[in-house]
Design a protein around this nucleic acid. Sequence first.
DNA 1: TTAGATGTTCTGCTCGACAGACTATCGTGT
DNA 2: ACACGATAGTCTGTCGAGCAGAACATCTAA
Lengths: 159, 159
Amino acid sequence: MTTPQRVESDLGWALGRVARAHLRVAQEQVAGLPGGPRGYQVLVAAAREESSTQLALAQKLGVDRTVMTYLIDELQAAGLVERRPDPADRRARRVVLTEAGGARLCDLERRLREAEQHVLAPLTPEEQDVLRALLRRVAEVDPDTASACEVARDLAQEC
Amino acid sequence: MTTPQRVESDLGWALGRVARAHLRVAQEQVAGLPGGPRGYQVLVAAAREESSTQLALAQKLGVDRTVMTYLIDELQAAGLVERRPDPADRRARRVVLTEAGGARLCDLERRLREAEQHVLAPLTPEEQDVLRALLRRVAEVDPDTASACEVARDLAQEC
DNA sequence: TTAGATGTTCTGCTCGACAGACTATCGTGT
DNA sequence: ACACGATAGTCTGTCGAGCAGAACATCTAA
């Protein structure tokens, strides 16, 4: 017999829908920002993280390093970030916010906070906090570390 | 002053990371299945949903209808689904699982259940259930309906 | 100093996704 | 019965995002 699950109970399905929905409203809110929602994440990371070399940013945001190059190109062209030579490693560039970048980020944060509440509207404020916290805890584990600890391999029981 | 948020507290960041992580392990598990993880979702939907016309499937899974066409082409070529004429509407095709498709789905469901647990490993089983339930509730609202109810527009307070 | 590893950038290519057109069919109104 | 617009599915063409791979500068360790 086939199992009684429905699509709605598939984690991948829910994750995909929510991520897409969030992406859509985020795109509206950051309209005009180079790099779209990811450009925003670069700004956040550049503002808060200490070791903001390009590679570190790339892995934190989950993008290819070659992508990070032109992402930052555009943000720099827009005057929102600067590339500063890393005093400790002359190969690396540290990405720092300009004053304009800080102002822009401040505005974007407000808009996105509203947009996110909109996406999470079906939940109560308390539930929203729970969801945020849980997602964060899952997201915070290093993906490489996670894939290193082997997926269970005994799949020998029936449906 | 810039606000004190870190990237980790950004919902978009967490959603992206978790969705990517899930996608990656899902891809490993469904290796060889036409259409990858989305092919799997088609199988699930075709097995459980009643009105499984191609368009309905497409919007449920959040893909373009032209994409759904060749997605189903491939699954059909692999002998996992069939296109049956809809008795009520001769324009539409109902997508139904073949016997082979049912067996494959059964196997995939087991593998994916394990893989998902692996992604959610940082959470306790109870927390996993909570996360699943919350995500599902957010995902279940119709995206069009959601975007229809206007995003709040008073953004007039400072950071 | 040399050899290999690492950060960044550039080039070229591939593949997926969307727009738009087209066919067949539905449903409605007259 | 007919005509019209809307809808399901398919097909074609095109575009752009993202990756592999190479090149270059620099670091680190032997």
